[in-house]
Amino acid sequence: MHTSLTPQVDVRRASERFTTEIGWLDSKHSFSFGHHYDDANTHHGLLLVNNDDVVRPGFGFDTHPHRDMEIVTWVLQGSLVHQDSEGHNGIIYPGLAQRMSAGSGILHSEKNDSWRLAGAVHDEPVHFVQMWVVPDEPGITPGYEQLEIDAELLGGGLVPVASGMDKHDGAAAIRIKNRYAALHAARLRPGRHVELPEAPFVHLFVPRGAVELEGAGRLETGDAVRFTATGGQKVTATEPAEILVWEMHASLAA
């Protein structure tokens, strides 16, 4: 733990997030994003984006560019079709982790149109969380990875989902190009608990359900907590819940 940091537990409620609503999209932004800007809320640790998105069927994000960003997508409900300029394509669904390294530059699209590919008709929205962290260095070769980790989540513990840290080598996790960051997930039944990692910077997000955070009380769907120079707290589900936890051992400059 960095002794120069002041320990802090900063609870951010769902209602405090920036909101984008454009008919087919309901998006909630934990940090400054697009035209939503607050110079006091641009990142925590290495995490710049934590977007909680719901997209109507038949709609989505048309082809658009990214560069020098590690983008992790986690689907909670429905399915999301990914296509990019490097020739990668796939359907992302609950329990499948996906990482796209934008690197020197990539174009991609994300749409709720898997029903067309599957030859079936449905009208289910897709609910997903997309998270961005910076890579260790700019200009890397763009890349893509997806991995099924549903079986690991059945145990109810905190499971590494995406990591660039050496300690997760060999774990069932997708690899990101940042050696100081790792994303964990847990699906918790009522009464089950996990313990948060200890790191200079930790970000806890509750995309669905409700939990009790040791020392801070109840957290509900959409709530988040930014930890600085502290960790190890218990998170206990008070109803069926899913949590996403970033463990970060470095930070961007303010």
Rank of each mutant, 00 (worst) to 15 (best):
T3H: 08
S4M: 11
S4Q: 13
L5E: 11
V9H: 10
D10A: 03
R12A: 04
F18T: 10
E21V: 15
E21A: 15
W24I: 07
H29M: 13
H29Q: 12
H29A: 08
S30W: 07
H35V: 14
H36M: 15
N41S: 10
T42N: 12
H44D: 13
G45C: 00
G45F: 00
L47C: 05
V49Y: 00
N51S: 07
R67Y: 14
R67W: 12
D68L: 07
L76D: 07
S85E: 00
G90S: 09
I91G: 02
I92D: 00
P94I: 01
A97H: 07
A97I: 11
G103Q: 02
G105V: 10
I106N: 10
L107H: 07
L107Y: 14
S109F: 04
N112V: 10
S114N: 12
H122E: 14
E124C: 13
E124F: 13
M131C: 11
W132T: 04
D136F: 03
G139H: 06
P142R: 05
E145F: 04
A151D: 14
L158G: 00
S163R: 02
K167W: 09
H168G: 00
D169M: 04
A172K: 14
A172Q: 13
I176G: 10
I176R: 05
R179T: 09
A181H: 01
H184N: 01
A185W: 00
A186T: 09
V194P: 04
L196A: 00
E198V: 14
F205D: 11
F205L: 11
P207S: 02
L213N: 03
E214N: 02
G215W: 10
A216N: 00
G217F: 03
L219K: 04
G222Q: 04
D223C: 11
T228H: 00
A229C: 09
G231Y: 01
T236R: 10
T238C: 07
E239T: 14
A241L: 07
W246Q: 05
L252V: 15
